[in-house]
């Protein structure tokens, strides 16, 4: 009788303990979610505001605090597309051309450089690596003028070459570093087995390292895509003709010094301009997370 009683008391205590713990966890979870949702709303508010503004006539954009448009006005999209002297079809094509080539250039050249640093032995390897890492610490604006003078002397200003060619020369230290970190995770025995199987260093890269490094490549590709697609300064410096403009430069043209800015069409085109980045990210999201996690940058 005593034994039964003590068991039931113990069981009750354990149950109470479990319930108390569950209540505490629920409270903590609730607080955490409230905080996260509030923070997310602050972060996402400008985007929501821009989407809302893209459906409003110009006179309502700054006149109403409501995020919900009184009427959904699709004219901003149709007007915006052809509002400038050159159609946005051209600007999107220009951006796509520059971005696709930049992504290809960055992924190929940076992965080559990373493979050399991670796997091959050559004279002065550590010094070159240190120099490469130092370029990470130099702001783009510092090299802008000497770079401009170089491209001016080469006769490349007012062409896409200054925006594309450097991407094929492994100039992005961040991507190289990211890929080095990833390659270092791959066992060296794979290279050695491939060497015995008759592979040259390039074949090892092509047949073994590259297929195993898709997450790192995708991560580099998407960052390269985003940075090139939304790059404003580079095209601003090197492109002078409107028909050569990329989307960010075109968007700037909606703003006028004399106060006759077209905000509605500008926001509509801005929304369209971020769609490719959004889609690219959605498609490669899983690979990016793996790439960042496995390259030790997390």
């Amino acid at each position: 009788m005593t034994t039964t009683l003590s068991i039931s008391t113990t069981a009750l205590t354990a149950k109470q303990y479990r319930e108390a713990r569950a209540r505490r966890a629920k409270r903590a979870g609730l607080l955490k979610h409230v905080f996260l949702i509030a923070t997310s709303l602050i972060m996402i508010y400008p985007l929501i505001w821009m989407i809302s503004a893209s459906f409003k006539p110009d006179n309502q954009i700054f006149g109403s605090l409501s995020l919900w448009p009184a009427t959904f006005d699709w004219d901003n999209y149709s007007q915006g597309w052809n509002a400038l002297s050159v159609s946005f079809t051209r600007f999107f094509w220009n951006s796509t051309f520059v971005t696709v080539l930049s992504v290809i250039g960055n992924v190929i050249s940076c992965s080559f450089a990373a493979y050399a640093f991670a796997r091959l032995e050559f004279t002065g390897k550590n010094m070159w690596f240190a120099l490469m890492m130092m370029t990470l610490m130099v702001p783009y604006h510092v090299v802008l003028i000497p770079q401009y003078l170089l491209f001016l002397n080469l006769g490349w200003v007012n062409t896409y070459l200054p925006l594309i060619v450097p991407k094929f020369l492994a100039g992005e230290a961040f991507f190289i570093f990211l890929m080095i970190q990833f390659f270092r995770q791959l066992p060296r025995e794979l290279d050695e087995a491939a060497m015995i199987d008759g592979c040259s260093p390039f074949k090892i890269y092509w047949a073994i390292i590259m297929p195993l490094s898709l997450p790192a490549m995708a991560t580099a590709a998407i960052f390269s895509f985003i940075w090139t697609w939304e790059d404003f300064l580079g095209p601003l410096v090197y492109l002078n003709k409107i028909e050569d403009y990329t989307v960010p430069l075109a968007l700037r043209m909606f703003l006028s010094q004399d106060g006759a800015s077209q905000y509605g069409p500008m926001f509509a085109m801005s929304i369209l301009s971020i769609l490719p980045i959004f889609l690219f990210f959605i498609i490669f999201q899983r690979l990016i997370i793996r790439g960042i996690a496995m390259s030790g940058l997390k």
Binding site: L190, E192, A193, M195, G198, C199, I208
Partner: peptide, 20 residues
């Protein structure tokens, strides 16, 4: 001579199978 021309095969501790 490079490894591939020595007419030998090697089995590694970690197997070193190509994962893909």
């Amino acid at each position: 001579l490079p490894a591939s021309q020595r007419n030998l095969s090697m089995v590694f501790q970690s197997y070193a199978l190509y994962p893909h």
